[in-house]
Amino acid sequence: MAVLEPFLKQLKQSGSIMFSLLRPAYSNCRLCGRSMKPIVRAETYADASYARYQLPIIPELCESCNRSIAWIKDVRCLICGRAVHCDDCIRRVDAGFIWNRSAVRYDSVMRSWLANYKYQGQEHLEPLLIDMLEPMFKQMTTELISRLNIKVKPRRYKYMPDILTGFDQMKHHAAACWDIVTYVPISEERASERGFNQAQRLAAGLARRYGLPIASLLLRTRHTTRQSFKTRLERLRDTRMLFTAEPAAAALLTSIYTDKYSHASTFFTLEKQPLRVLLVDDIYTTGSTANSCAITLHACSGITLELYVLTWARS
């Protein structure tokens, strides 16, 4: 029997490999690791009623993880992107940015996901967070295009119908809508401790998917303790003069601006619009960080900017 043991083992193994070929393709949930069927439509969920909320579905997550995402479906405060009524924005007088939009509410589940990524360093969650940022980015872009009446020049393909659908169309819209993507910087101490800047990673991921230009325009002047331990007033006081512009920022903005209008033909004088900048961060609490960044950016060059903020979570 002892002699046969390795052979039996081999047989068992090859048997299970054969068996796995017959099984439907299951994958593991990226977050909880449970095995799941790849489901992309909420209608096929065990609890089909989830479909009626018409929320985005992240295909890499299992049903229960998908259901625990606190999406912001209705934006109640058009300035700060809150899902509930907001008093802060009425008080605000010196907002440097036009809107903020956030993908999710910062509830306990979302908090733990972000903590796993940001503080524990589970960088395999990064694509997931970018996936979650995407629906809001699309919504924001579409909204902006319709509001500002931006003309999207459809690219013509020679042998293809003149219809662009889905992702391609979104790419064109995004390119027409955003001139540059930038992000909130972190201090050098924090960077060496954490190993990465979460805002930069989110921004870079988004920019890569939609082919948008990304640049680092800001620097953090001093190392502050973690924002999450502070009250509203402390944050507002603390974030004043926290950022400066990168030395090359002004030149970069100018060159983008001139590039944009250098192709304007002599026949049509293009109406010159301000540069639209998308500022990305992981979390929006009082808006003081975003505001401080925005003020710094406005001051750094003579070009008028329109700043929009996209954050992953709104607390």
């Binding site: 524990q120 589970q122 395999h124 190993g195």
Partner: peptide, 20 residues
């Protein structure tokens, strides 16, 4: 898992098994 690391400025591996 290898990711770009701000602390050493290289692609730098980290261990997923004991990240907790």
């Amino acid at each position: 898992r290898r990711t770009p690391c701000a602390a050493c400025g290289r692609m730098c591996a980290y261990c997923e098994a004991c990240i907790g």
